[in-house]
Structures are given as structure tokens and as C-alpha cells.
């Protein structure tokens, strides 16, 4: 019976500070074209029913507390999947005054899925990875939090990093 957790994990989605790009791509994952439901994954509205928390977007001053609340309400064992580059560093909004940083400053993250927005295939891959971690957590294994994606730039490198990005975009 306990296999049910990893055979059919339930996912709660919280939009932290996202631009909607990742959210609609995540919802697109649920629908017939990509269909994560074939892995038994069910999108659920109530955090107390969920095993997996999918977060999109970065943390700002107002929603940090809400994110913490949603995370605390999910029963153990739980895994967190952070979708999109904003969740690791703030992404394109990294320099904004109301952005505190990635979601990893508030809650421990198990899987980062980079991209702006990530493709649905990448999201499915991320969720499936998270389900594997969930299974191992259920068996009592202690899991370290995921390292940040290597492409994440730090705010101090912001200026130089941005310039290279723009150059790439112009040559395309």
C-alpha cells in the first residue's frame, strides 16, 4: 500500500513570482499531449494531499511566507521541484528590488529544472526524477538538497553575464 506514494504521487503547484510562462507549461504537462498522468501523477489543489511541490518563479517579500506555509503543510516525505531559471536565481528579474532570490533560500529544493521556460519534456523529466527521490526518502534515506544549476549567475556577475546573453541573442 505504501508503494502508492511513488506509484501515484500527487502534485501541488505554487506560483511564487513567476511570469506565467512556466505555469502554463506545467499545466500543459498535465494535459493529453504530454500527459504526466500516465505516471500516476495527479495535480491537486490542497497541499495537505500532496507529495510533490512544484514551485515556479522566485521569492519576493510577500510570498516567501506563503511558500513556507504551503511547504510546511505537505506531509512527509515530500519533494520539491523548482521549475524555471527564476527559481534558482531570480532569472531575468534578478536585479529587481522586490526579488529576494531563488526559492532555495526559503525551502530545500530537490530538483531544479532550468529553462525560461523549461520545455514540457524537461519538466516531466524533473518530476519523474523527483518521484525517484520521493521513493528513496520514503525508505528513510536522507537526501541532500540539489545543487544549483551551473549556469546560474550570481548577482555580482550580473552585468557581464547579461551582456554575453544579449550578444548571443543578436547573432541568432
Amino acid at each position: 500500500m505504501f508503494n502508492a506514494v511513488s506509484k501515484s504521487p500527487w502534485v501541488v503547484h505554487f506560483n511564487c513570482n513567476s511570469c506565467n510562462g512556466c505555469d502554463i507549461e506545467f499545466l500543459a504537462c498535465l494535459t493529453p499531449h504530454y500527459d504526466v498522468e500516465r505516471f500516476g501523477i495527479l495535480h491537486i489543489g490542497n497541499p495537505k494531499h500532496a507529495d510533490v511541490l512544484v514551485v515556479t518563479g522566485s521569492v519576493n517579500n510577500r510570498n516567501a511566507r506563503v511558500l513556507q506555509n504551503v511547504y510546511n503543510q505537505i506531509p512527509d516525505p515530500k519533494v520539491v521541484v523548482a521549475m524555471g531559471v527564476c527559481t534558482s536565481s531570480g532569472g531575468v528579474f534578478a536585479g529587481c528590488y522586490n526579488i529576494l532570490g531563488g526559492v532555495d533560500i526559503v525551502i530545500p529544493v530537490d530538483v531544479f529544472v532550468p529553462g525560461c521556460p523549461p520545455r514540457p519534456e524537461a519538466m516531466i523529466d524533473g518530476i519523474v526524477k523527483a518521484v525517484g527521490i520521493l521513493e528513496r526518502k520514503r525508505k528513510g534515506e536522507v537526501f541532500p538538497t540539489a545543487p544549483k544549476p551551473t549556469h546560474t549567475f550570481k548577482p555580482s556577475e550580473e552585468q557581464s553575464a547579461e551582456k554575453t546573453v544579449i550578444k548571443e541573442e543578436k547573432t541568432v
Binding site: 510562462g21 510577500r62 506563503v66 531575468v92 547579461e162
Partner: peptide, 25 residues
């Protein structure tokens, strides 16, 4: 205010061609 980022301020700190891609977000 749960999704307030402060994009209008950031747009003033980038040049107007970079803004095109910021605005999309």
C-alpha cells in the same frame, strides 16, 4: 503583491533593446 517583482524599475536600468526581451517576461 504576491507576484510583484519591480520590473518597471529594472527596465530603466537596461537599455531599450534589452528591454524588449525583459518586457516579454
Amino acid at each position: 503583491g504576491y507576484v510583484h517583482r519591480g520590473l518597471e524599475k529594472l527596465a530603466e536600468q537596461k537599455d531599450f533593446l534589452q528591454d524588449t526581451f525583459l518586457i516579454e517576461r
